Simulated scan of single mutants.
Amino acid sequence: MIESWVFSDDTAPASPAAAIEVLRERISAGQLEAWLTSSSGRSLAFISNTERAMVVLLDGEDDPGEHAVDPGASGSSKGFVLANGQHDEYPDEDTLPLAEALQVVQHILTTGAPPPHAAWSIDR
Score class of each variant (00 low, 15 high):
34 A>T: 05
95 T>F: 01
20 I>H: 09
106 Q>F: 05
53 A>I: 01
69 V>L: 03
90 Y>H: 04
31 Q>M: 08
61 E>M: 09
51 E>G: 14
9 D>W: 11
116 P>H: 05
64 P>R: 13
94 D>M: 08
114 P>I: 09
48 S>T: 10
44 L>E: 03
37 T>R: 10
112 G>A: 03
90 Y>L: 13
40 S>K: 13
74 S>C: 13
11 T>C: 12
93 E>V: 04
119 A>Q: 06
86 Q>H: 08
66 E>G: 12
24 R>V: 05
81 V>M: 09
12 A>H: 15
54 M>A: 13
121 S>Y: 12
60 G>W: 10
21 E>Y: 02
4 S>M: 12
99 A>D: 15
118 A>F: 03
68 A>H: 00
30 G>S: 10
58 L>H: 05
55 V>C: 07
4 S>T: 15
49 N>R: 11
81 V>K: 12
48 S>I: 06
6 V>W: 09
105 V>R: 02
4 S>P: 02
13 P>G: 03
46 F>C: 02
43 S>C: 11
15 S>P: 14
51 E>Q: 13
90 Y>I: 11
119 A>R: 10
4 S>N: 14
75 G>R: 08
76 S>P: 06
97 P>N: 05
52 R>P: 01
16 P>G: 12
35 W>I: 00
75 G>F: 09
83 A>P: 00
82 L>C: 10
20 I>F: 03
115 P>T: 02
27 I>F: 14
71 P>M: 05
107 H>C: 11
45 A>M: 12
92 D>G: 01
70 D>Q: 14
28 S>G: 15
84 N>C: 12
119 A>K: 06
